[in-house]
């Protein structure tokens, strides 16, 4: 257990460090990552630790600033998806079976929707900005967790006091806020964490496929440019494609550690064993 706690702590520390870096890092840099300071494709040097991109812009600065884009989208998606999932899943767990059935079929539908054209559609009409991308990703990511949360609420029915409250004429909202929230709340941390993980990887994949905004700074964008500029075929992969990839690996691992640790902690059967 202590080791599990340790894992969670490591994850939390890593995440905090990344978040602090994303927020404060850009202030400490002498460039915003958009100024052309060196020759295109300049290799790393004492001044520019990761060299320069194809326009001669500092890659280390882009890595630091890119954290904002990647963590930003993760945060936005995770917040939005968790909120929707909690509301939909929670209410579906409390609603009468026929209504819950309808809601769950909507969830099925969302899970089955073709994702890419939706993204192109949104990008074409609303612009491929961070917010729009986050909204589209969130609109698709909430569905799975909503099921999970509904299952949690259904399990809570068996404890009886929900039924008692309903028998006394409580509304669904009241039930959700007063009685179901203690059941739902613990589930939200892993849901949040998983949505954040999905968002980071998905957004980077979209950038790689050329469906993101190639001018908005994020780790995915960096890998995209490294890829289209053939960095993998030169030494540049080492300082252009590897660092943002590792940054993603680090972030996602940190999130996963936190998620696993909370799941372990919250699981009543595991807690017993302590």
């Amino acid at each position: 257990m202590r080791a599990g706690l340790l894992a969670g702590r490591i994850g939390a520390v890593l995440l905090t460090a990344l978040a602090v870096g994303a927020v404060a890092g850009p202030w400490l840099l002498s460039t915003d990552g958009r100024e052309r300071l060196a020759a295109p494709y300049a290799p790393p040097s004492a001044d520019r630790w990761l060299g320069a991109d194809d326009l001669g812009r500092d890659l280390f600065a882009q890595l630091v600033i890119g954290a904002r884009g990647s963590l930003g989208i993760a945060l936005l998606v995770a917040l939005a998806a968790t909120t929707i999932a909690a509301l939909v899943g929670g209410l579906a767990g409390l609603a009468p079976p026929w209504a819950a059935g309808i809601v769950m079929r909507v969830v099925d539908l969302v899970l089955a929707l073709p994702f890419l054209p939706l993204l192109i559609l949104a990008a074409a009409f609303l612009g491929p900005t961070l917010g729009v991308r986050a909204a589209v990703v969130a609109a698709l990511v909430w569905a799975g967790p909503a099921r999970l949360i509904r299952a949690g609420v259904l399990a809570a029915w068996s404890r009886g006091h929900l039924q008692a409250a309903r028998a006394m004429g409580a509304s669904a909202w009241y039930l959700l806020l007063r009685h179901a929230s203690p059941v739902v709340a613990p589930l939200l941390v892993p849901v949040f964490v998983r949505a954040a993980m999905t968002a980071i990887v998905l957004d980077a994949s979209l950038a790689f496929l050329g469906l993101g905004d190639p001018t908005s700074p994020s780790w995915g964008t960096m890998i995209h440019w490294a890829s289209v500029r053939g960095a993998m075929l030169t030494d540049a992969w080492l300082w252009w494609a590897l660092p943002p990839g590792l940054a993603i690996v680090l972030t996602v691992t940190a999130l996963a550690l936190v998620g696993v640790a909370t799941e372990d902690r919250l699981n009543p059967t595991l807690r017993q064993a302590r």
Partner: peptide
């Protein structure tokens, strides 16, 4: 750690 790496990368 392994799982965290994006597939394309």
């Amino acid at each position: 750690l392994l799982d965290a790496a994006p597939a394309f990368w």
